[in-house]
């Protein structure tokens, strides 16, 4: 990638509010894009990944929370900060329930917002590749709470797309996927992101450890048997990301 600057999307129908955040964030060396509606924000997200999305709760057409849900679907690793002029307790709770990173009320104090963005962009990026949607969602919740940004893929082809879009710090791969073996993903990560750590997950235990060796793949840092031992996984992640 030629430009290593962090990318931020500001979505607010208030043009001046967007312009101000663009000015402030550009000064901080972020790349800033602007959307004036939920639909526009989603169009941006579909085109390219962002590190952080600032979402106004009330915009014409799609509201901020619906927009967040779709955004989370499209690019689960994006950190969203919801900004609202209402700041009622209900809106906050709904947003928290939906998994929005943070809720800030207008008028936004940049002295609070900027550290939040700074923290978010430093969080390690993880990709979880598994066709078990429930496992993916649980891992997303658990890992998000632990301060990781988590992307999800349910197949080899989806994982390829994710890996093409951005680089990851850690890639967790299930060995059996509907359209092939996770090993091919591991190989690709090895080839294109030498710094990334790979964790293989398997329901078949010992045998697959041998298969992995037979295929001539450099031994992954960890092969973890399913069901995943979460405390151990978290310890692995802490070790490889710090």
């Amino acid at each position: 990638m030629s430009d290593h600057r962090r990318r931020i999307l500001v979505a607010d129908d208030d043009v001046d509010a967007c312009q101000n955040l663009r000015d402030i964030l550009t000064d901080m060396d972020y790349v800033v894009e602007v959307a004036h509606s939920g639909e526009e924000a989603l169009a941006w997200i579909e085109r390219q990944p962002f590190d952080v999305v600032l979402l106004d709760l009330r915009m014409p057409g799609m509201d901020g929370i619906t927009c967040y849900r779709r955004l989370r679907q499209a690019r689960p690793e994006t950190v969203s900060i919801l900004i609202t002029a209402y700041a009622t307790r209900e809106a906050e709770q709904e947003a928290e329930f939906a998994g929005v990173a943070r809720v800030l009320s207008k008028p936004v104090d940049p002295r609070r917002l900027l550290p939040m963005i700074d923290t978010a962009v430093r969080q390690p990026l993880l990709l979880v590749v598994d066709d078990d949607t429930d496992l993916c969602e649980s891992l997303w919740d658990i890992l998000r709470d632990q301060g990781y940004r988590v992307s999800l893929a349910g197949s080899v082809s989806e994982a390829s797309r994710r890996l093409h879009d951005r680089s990851f710090d850690v890639v967790l791969i299930d060995l059996r996927l509907p359209d092939g073996y996770g090993v091919s993903i591991a190989q690709r990560v090895r080839a294109t992101m030498p710094e990334a750590h790979v964790v293989l997950m398997t329901g078949y235990g010992r045998e697959l450890r041998e298969i992995v060796g037979d295929m001539g793949l450099p031994p992954p840092e960890c092969v973890r048997a399913k069901p995943i031992d979460i405390p151990r996984l978290l310890a692995d992640l802490r070790r490889v990301t710090t």
């Binding site: 208030d14 509010a17 101000n20 955040l21 000015d23 402030i24 900004i83 207008k106 008028p107 936004v108």
Partner: peptide, 14 residues
């Protein structure tokens, strides 16, 4: 009121 205040506050910060 919070929307205009939001713009004013961020301009002041800038």
């Amino acid at each position: 009121l919070r929307n205009p205040l939001n713009v004013i506050r961020t301009s002041v910060y800038y």
